Computed example of a mutant assay.
Amino acid sequence: MKITQGTFSFLPPLTDEEIVAQIGYALDQGWACSVEYTDDPHPRNTYWEMWGLPMFDLHDAAGVMMEVNECRKTYPRHYIKVNAFDSVRGFETMRLSFMVNRPEEEHGFRLERQDDRNRVQRYALRTYATDRPAGERY
């Protein structure tokens, strides 16, 4: 099962050249790039670990790509994404976010039924990755 999060998530994985092109586009728009990683890709896990600091003063795609490659070397079996943040007053939001690395094997999710009061059935998504402790998931 392929985790689909962020822009381009339904497309085949981007090549490094395509990643550089997307980073270049973001920088041309004046957006600041950052790199994040996680081993818990649950859709509600919005707080991924940040690789370094956001690169507000960087204007070269090669510099962002260098950080992506360093993160890939350190965490080869994690999900890694690039974010592009628009700091213009009134927007101040993430404009672009896309995956640049995935584990070789993606475990997917299971649907768990939960019994609630008055025989109400509720459902929750659980990722198989969290069956193991952080750092040992992939």
Rank of each mutant, 00 (worst) to 15 (best):
E17D: 14
E17W: 00
E17N: 15
E17H: 12
E18P: 01
I19S: 01
I19Y: 10
V20R: 15
A21I: 00
A21F: 09
A21T: 10
Q22K: 15
Q22D: 06
Q22F: 01
Q22H: 14
I23C: 02
I23V: 15
I23F: 01
I23G: 06
G24I: 00
G24S: 15
Y25Q: 09
Y25G: 04
A26G: 12
A26M: 04
L27M: 03
L27F: 13
D28E: 15
Q29S: 03
G30L: 04
G30K: 09
G30F: 06
G30Y: 00
G30H: 09
W31M: 11
W31S: 00
A32G: 11
A32W: 03
A32L: 02
C33Q: 04
C33M: 04
C33E: 01
C33A: 12
C33T: 06
S34M: 11
S34A: 15
V35S: 02
E36P: 02
E36I: 05
E36A: 13
E36F: 01
E36V: 11
E36C: 12
E36S: 12
Y37H: 15
Y37N: 08
T38D: 07
T38A: 07
T38V: 01
T38I: 08
D39W: 09
D39K: 09
D40H: 13
D40C: 12
P41G: 08
P41Q: 01
H42G: 06
H42I: 07
H42K: 13
H42E: 11
P43L: 11
P43Y: 14
P43R: 06
R44S: 11
R44I: 08
R44G: 11
N45Y: 04
N45C: 12
N45G: 09
N45R: 12
N45L: 04
T46V: 13
T46Q: 08
Y47G: 00
Y47V: 03
Y47I: 06
E49I: 08
E49S: 14
E49A: 11
E49W: 08
E49G: 01
M50E: 10
M50A: 13
W51E: 11
W51L: 04
G52S: 12
L53D: 13
P54Q: 05
P54N: 05
F56S: 07
F56N: 09
F56Y: 14
F56I: 03
F56G: 01
D57L: 05
L58Q: 14
H59F: 14
H59N: 11
H59A: 10
H59S: 10
D60I: 04
D60S: 13
